[in-house]
Design a binder for these strands. Structure first.
Length: 657
DNA sequence: TTGTCTCAG
DNA sequence: GATTCTGAGACAA
C-alpha cells in the first residue's frame, strides 16, 4: 500500500498506436494512407487519419459535419470491431514477446504499458561506464548477441522539457543533482532507446506506427507520450522531486479532466470547488466572464486543499473510498498502480447495437437473434482454445502469434473452453419519453437484467444459429420481458447482450499440458484470495482440507458434481478408450451445469455452488455421461483431477516431462 | 449476486 | 454529459 519513498522507481513505457482504426484499414488498403480517411459507426466518425486531421476533422464528429468540411473524405464503416480487435491482439502479442516479465497491460485496443524495469536494470549492470556512447542493449539474458547498439549518453526521441532549450540554462538546482537523479536519468535514457527500438520493430515488422511515453509510472508515461504525436516519443526528464521538478512543471498546465482517473464527474466536482460555483458542462466556455478551465496546478496549489479535504470534496454516495488520496497523488504525478500482466480471457464479452427507433416486439426479436449470434461467435473466438498436442514443440514468442486471430482453425482441431461465463445480461437504453407534463426528462442511460447462462450455449456440436435461437427464446426474451413488462410504449435506442462472471479454467494450454503445474496452482490460489473470482479448486487446496480421496469424492458428490461427465466419452462397454480419446467424442464438448471445470487435464470441482440448478434443470437431459458409476472414480495425486479409474494411467502421461 | 455508475479508448 | 462499441472496476442493496 505505502510506497517506500526511497525506492528506486520502476520504468514504464506507454505505447499508443497512431489513429489505430485507420491504421488497421490502411494495412489492408495502403492507398488510403495518402487520402483523408475516417471510420464511421452509425452517424459518428469515431476516428480519422492524420490526412483528415490536417483538414480539421477530429474524433467523434458527426458524419454530416465531416463530409461538409472534407467532401473528398473516404469513409469506411467500422461498426463491426472484429478486425480491429484481431489486429490489436496480434500487435499485443508481438510487443509482449519483447517483455521479460509479461507485465504488459492493454488499455482499450490501441494502448499498452510495459513495465521494463527488469530489462533496464539488467542492461544498466552491463553498461561500460567509460564508453557509454557505444553501448549494446541486450534483449535476451541468454543470447548476448541478441539486441541493438545504442548511445547511452543521449535520450532517444524528444524529452520534456526539451533538452535544447534546457542546455542553455544552468542546471536547475545543482545541489539537487544527486546520485539517484543521475541514475534515474541514465535509466530513462536506456528506456528511451528500448522504446525507440520497439516502435521501430512495430513499424517495420507490423506496419503500424506508434507513439511512446517513457517515465516511471503509468500516469506519467501515458501523459508525456501525448506531447509528440504521431509516430514520436517523449521521455519525462528528471528531476522528479524537489522544488522545481519536472513532474509538476509538466502536470500543472493540464486541464484536470485530462488526467487519467479523473473523469467527467470528478473533474466537475473539482471545478466547482475551485470556481465556487457549478461549472458549465462545456469546460472551454466562458461562464459569467470567468475562466471555466481548471488546471492541475490550480487544484494542487489551492490553499484550502490537501489530501484529506480533497476526500471530503470528492466523496459522495457511491464514490470509492480513498478517492481523495488517490486524486491528490495523481495531481502530484504519483501513481502506484502496477502494470498488470494481461489475463488470457476477458472478464466479460458484450455485443451491442444502437437504433434510431426500435419499438416493436418483432424487431426486438430479430435484433436479439443477430446479437446472440455475434455474442456466441465472440465467445468462441475469445473463450475457446485449441488443443494442440504438438504445441510444446513449437514454443516461441512468435509462434503463438499466428494461432487464434490469423489462421482459421482446422475443423479437426479439438477445442476447449478456457472460461465459462456464469451470467447473461441484457441491457437496453430506453429513449427518454418526450416531455409530457409531469413526466420528467429522465436522463437515465442503461438498464439491465441478468440471469444464469444456460449451459447449452457451450455445446460445440450445435450450429451457432440454433444455439442463438434457443438463447433468444429461453433466456433473452424472458430477460427482455423483465426489463420491459409493458407490451408497447417503449422505444429503445440501444440493446446490449453480455456474458460475464467468468469461471476460469486453470491456466492456458501450454501450462496445462504438463509444464509448470505447481506454478499454475500458485497462480490460481492467489487469484482466489485476491480477487474472489471463481476458480478451479487446485490440488493443494484439496489437500489442505485434510481429506483423502474418498472424502474428496464424497464432497464432490455433495457438490452435485457429475464427476465423469466432462471427461468420459461414451464408454464402449469392453474397450477402455485410449488417453487421446479422452478429448474426443461428440459429447465431451458439453459442459454439465455442475462441472464447470477447465480442460480435460484439470478435472477438479469448482467452488461455485450451483445456484443455477433450477434454471438448468430443463437442460438435464442434455447432460451426458452423468450416469457413470461413482465407484469407478480415481484421483490424480499430481493435479487433483478426478476421473474414471481406467483413465488415470493415461492421464498421468500429461504430467510426465 | 444483481444492477448501476464511473472510468477508460 | 452525449454521440460509437466496447471493457474494467467499484459500490449499494
Amino acid at each position: 500500500m505505502d510506497a517506500p519513498a526511497a525506492a528506486i522507481p520502476g520504468l514504464i513505457i506507454h505505447l499508443d498506436y497512431d489513429a489505430f482504426y485507420c491504421s488497421v484499414v490502411e494495412a489492408d488498403d495502403p492507398a488510403l494512407k495518402f487520402l483523408p480517411m475516417a471510420v464511421q459507426q452509425k452517424q459518428i466518425i469515431v476516428t480519422c487519419n492524420y490526412e483528415a486531421r490536417k483538414r480539421g476533422l477530429h474524433k467523434l464528429q458527426l458524419v454530416k459535419e465531416a463530409k461538409r468540411m472534407c467532401p473528398d473524405l473516404v469513409i469506411v464503416l467500422g461498426e463491426d470491431l472484429t478486425r480491429f480487435r484481431d489486429a490489436s491482439k496480434a500487435l499485443y502479442r508481438f510487443v509482449r514477446a519483447f517483455s521479460w516479465n509479461s507485465r504488459v497491460e492493454r488499455l482499450g485496443f490501441d494502448e499498452l504499458w510495459m513495465d521494463v524495469t527488469d530489462q533496464i536494470d539488467y542492461n544498466l549492470s552491463l553498461l561500460n561506464p567509460h564508453n557509454l556512447a557505444h553501448s549494446f542493449f541486450h534483449l535476451s539474458r541468454d543470447d548476448p548477441t541478441h539486441g541493438f547498439a545504442f548511445d547511452a549518453t543521449t535520450f532517444a526521441g524528444t524529452t520534456f522539457p526539451s533538452l535544447t532549450s534546457l542546455s542553455t540554462e544552468s542546471p536547475r538546482s545543482p545541489s539537487d543533482i544527486t546520485q539517484t537523479q543521475d541514475s534515474l536519468s541514465l535509466r530513462l535514457k536506456v528506456a528511451s532507446h528500448l522504446a525507440r527500438f520497439l516502435r521501430s520493430e512495430i513499424e517495420h515488422q507490423k506496419n503500424y506506427t506508434a507513439t511512446a511515453g517513457i517515465s516511471t509510472n503509468k500516469l506519467l508515461s501515458k501523459l508525456v507520450g501525448n506531447l509528440n504525436k504521431p509516430n514520436g516519443q517523449t521521455t519525462l526528464l528528471p528531476p522528479y522531486s524537489g522544488e522545481q521538478n519536472n513532474v509538476t512543471a509538466f502536470l500543472d498546465d493540464h486541464d484536470i479532466g485530462k488526467i487519467p482517473g479523473i473523469g467527467f464527474k470528478l473533474a466537475q466536482k473539482l471545478r466547482e470547488f475551485v470556481l465556487h460555483r457549478p461549472a458549465a458542462f462545456d469546460d472551454g466556455l466562458v461562464y459569467g466572464g470567468t475562466r471555466e478551465t481548471v488546471k492541475v496546478g490550480d487544484v494542487r496549489t489551492h490553499p484550502d486543499l490537501d489530501a484529506d479535504r480533497l476526500e471530503k470534496v470528492l466523496s459522495g454516495p457511491g464514490s470509492p473510498h480513498g478517492i481523495g488520496l488517490k486524486v491528490w497523488g495523481l495531481l502530484h504525478g504519483a501513481d502506484y498502480s502496477e502494470v498488470r500482466a494481461a489475463r488470457d480471457t476477458p472478464k466479460q464479452i458484450s455485443i451491442e447495437d444502437s437504433y434510431l427507433r426500435l419499438d416493436t416486439f418483432d424487431e426486438v426479436v430479430k435484433e436479439l437473434r443477430s446479437l446472440a449470434i455475434s455474442l456466441l461467435k465472440r465467445m468462441h473466438a475469445d473463450l475457446l482454445e485449441e488443443e494442440d498436442e504438438h504445441s510444446q514443440d513449437t514454443i516461441g514468442p512468435d509462434s503463438s502469434e499466428q494461432t487464434q486471430a490469423e489462421l482459421p482453425a482446422p475443423s479437426s482441431t479439438r477445442r476447449r473452453w478456457m472460461a465459462h461465463p456464469a451470467t447473461l445480461r441484457l441491457s437496453t437504453r430506453p429513449r427518454p419519453p418526450l416531455n409530457a407534463d409531469g413526466t420528467r426528462t429522465r436522463t437515465f442511460t442503461r438498464i439491465s437484467r441478468s440471469a444464469p447462462v444456460p449451459n447449452f450455449v457451450f455445446s460445440l456440436s450445435t450450429p451457432i444459429e440454433s444455439l442463438a435461437e434457443r438463447l433468444v427464446n429461453e433466456a433473452l426474451l424472458p430477460l427482455f420481458r423483465r426489463l420491459h413488462p409493458e407490451k408497447t410504449g417503449w422505444n429503445l435506442s440501444l440493446v446490449n447482450v453480455a456474458v460475464a462472471n467468468m469461471a476460469e479454467a486453470g491456466g492456458n494450454a501450454k501450462s496445462s499440458v504438463g509444464q509448470d503445474i505447481a506454478n499454475m496452482f500458485r497462480k490460481q490460489k492467489s487469484s482466489i484470495h485476491s480477487t474472489g473470482e471463481k476458480k478451479v479448486l487446485p490440488a493443494d487446496e484439496i489437500s489442505k482440507m485434510e481429506i483423502g480421496p474418498a472424502e474428496v469424492q464424497e464432497s464432490i458428490a455433495k457438490l452435485g458434481y457429475a464427476a465423469d461427465a466432462t471427461i468420459s466419452p461414451v464408454e464402449e462397454a469392453h474397450s477402455p478408450p485410449q488417453p487421446s480419446e479422452l478429448h474426443d467424442g461428440p459429447l465431451t464438448d458439453f459442459i454439465p451445469p455442475d462441472a464447470r471445470t477447465g480442460s480435460e487435464d484439470m478435472l477438479v470441482p469448482t467452488f461455485s455452488k450451483d445456484s443455477r440448478s433450477d434454471v438448468d434443470s430443463g437442460e438435464r437431459d442434455d447432460v451426458v455421461g452423468g450416469d457413470g458409476d461413482a465407484d469407478d472414480l480415481g484421483l490424480c495425486v499430481v493435479c487433483g483431477a478426478t476421473m474414471p479409474s481406467w483413465a488415470l494411467a493415461g492421464h498421468a502421461r500429461f504430467h510426465s516431462p
